[in-house]
Design a protein around this nucleic acid. Sequence first.
DNA 1: CGGTTGCACTTTTTT
DNA 2: AGTGCAACCG
Length: 705
Amino acid sequence: MDILEGLNTAQKSAVMVTSGPLLILAGAGSGKTKTLIHRIAYLIEQENVNPDTILAVTFTNKAAKEMRQRLSALLNSSNSRLFMPWMGTFHSICVKLLRIDGASIGISNNFIIYDEEDRQSLVKRAVKELGIDNKSLKVRSISSAISSAKNNLVSPEEYEATATFTNQKNIAKIYEKYERLKKNSGALDFDDLLLETVNLLESKPEVRKKWQNVFKHILIDEYQDTNAPQYKIVKLITNKDRNICVVGDDWQSIYSWRGADFTNILNFEHDFPGAKVVKLEQNYRSTGAILEAANNVIKKNTKRTDKKLWTGSGMGEPVEIIESRDEADEAFAVSNKISSQAELGARNFGDFAVLYRTNAQSYPFERAFMQFKIPYQIIGGVRFYDRKEIKDIIAYLRLIYQPNDAVSFNRIVNVPSRGLGATSVERFLLSMESGDNSILSALANAYNINGITPRAKAAFQNLGSILNDLSTMSETVSPSKLIEELIDRIDYLNLLNDGTSQADERKNNIGAMISDALNFADLSSFLEEVALMSSVDTNSDKEKVTLMTIHAAKGLEFPVVFMVGMEEGVFPSARTFDEGPDVLEEERRLCYVGMTRAREELKLSYARSRLQFGQRSYNSPSRFLSDMSVEGTYSYVNHEELIDDYNQVEQKINIPIFVVGDKVKSAAFGVGQVIDANGSIVSVRFNSGYVKKLNAEFARLEKVI
DNA sequence: CGGTTGCACTTTTTT
DNA sequence: AGTGCAACCG
């Protein structure tokens, strides 16, 4: 049987137990994804299960995409998505359910999705409308308080009832107002997608039964990182046959700050009595040295299950600890190692990953990689769709699609500038409260508004007609074409011509969005993709060094991993110091996740000093380094040598870059002209008649002007 | 109304 | 160090 080939005993039984609840406890690198894919293939091919009745929930869109590709390769099917199971994140599956059945709980099918920035913008509005003026209450923290309330299934009324301090009472009021404003805007936020699905499945038995009937086999990946609403959804969509398979590892739970609760996985057998449990404990990814060090770190946690992860392969290279003087030195040390391995031909750039605790740590590496000419890519950080120019266009599109979207209206009402300031916009919104509640019709009737100038009236009406025209157009033209028309109509590219060096990049981004939109048939699906696409979902380039946070690296693996910034106050983060032990345990799990991404070589690096918040701080090496310590497994790199190297390279870097036609002077050969240049290898025709091919790094060439 | 200047704050992690 | 925001002026 093809499908079972290449699986170990535990993996085989995880594939073949196809009825009833199943818990797969999969240690890091134990072939979890492979097992899941084989399990789905087995259901389809061996048990003739209709793919449409299988639901597989992944943690990221990227993971779903990868699973789809690997499954289609295994099934040897032509890459058709038609015969594919339902695959996606909880959020994307919920969107599908709500678009289809949301109407029964009062959610219109053209709802739009608010991201964190949209939420904060609406919170700001709520604070303003309520007249709350309290500087100790920041929009950011209000937003996160609301989000965590929602993730704990606490309604505004319940929040209000338990509020004691003034700040809490204020947050309760803002929470309530925020919910109302959001509803008026025809929008759902990320948390709503889950909550409203719970609400739908709980309150409408016929809808629940319908979906229970659709999903005959359910698989949930990364179950240790499910939160309360997600847990409820799992329970609600599982039918009486209980063909529910969850996969996870409590040692790798790193999202509790987002409401994830790893006791969900610990309680699975209790929630689904009679569940079978399969443990995948053989690690196929990492060397013995890496695994041993990682185990030593996780061992220090008290709240965890016991399991013994083992490998059949040898110890391999010792885990290496690199000490550097400061963050620039650290970036240099990493670049130096990558560069020399790549030059030797021992590794490709794509074999390396640099993992850090926070996105802000990427900067020195970007600089060093540029100097070393190391190709790199950053995964995560600012999403493509979070760029200002992209969000402006998206705001227009959303407003066209959902004419009540107040957040988008606020964003674009004066972009590009139409002479509409805060006062006019306030008066406009005030007039809306008493009359129209559709922004579009209010714009058309703007001449009725009292207290605004004729110029402002005309500007509102003009915006109204732009939106109206495009809205009509959107029914017949593609999203891509619609964006082009929009940009033309509001002369947006001209707005981007602000004389700054980023103008071209911004225009390129707009171009990239237009070509991206070509993949979508209608506005609705394009907006949905834009909202749910996360920053870690971008395709990675196999020829480049990957830079990302440890969180973003979950589920991935690389031959060589550098974990950088291994310092107290960086990792573990300073924020954990005044929190309870649970928070530190999560940091330690995060460390474990990072270490177990490495297949062959793991290098941990710390700097004696680092620029933090614009100040130089001197942090001691991370406690995790001493946790993992095993005699004879480590080699320390002498930082003094590194500094010498660093100075050498600084000199190298200072050599000018030569282009064809440059006049140059060499101490040995005199004056000449560059006739060919490829990096530091330069061909020069000297006035003496000689043509020499020189390495500019060593030849001490000088430019002559 | 819109642009500029100065000050405060930032760094967890992301669907 | 870089960004976002509030206050001020033309």
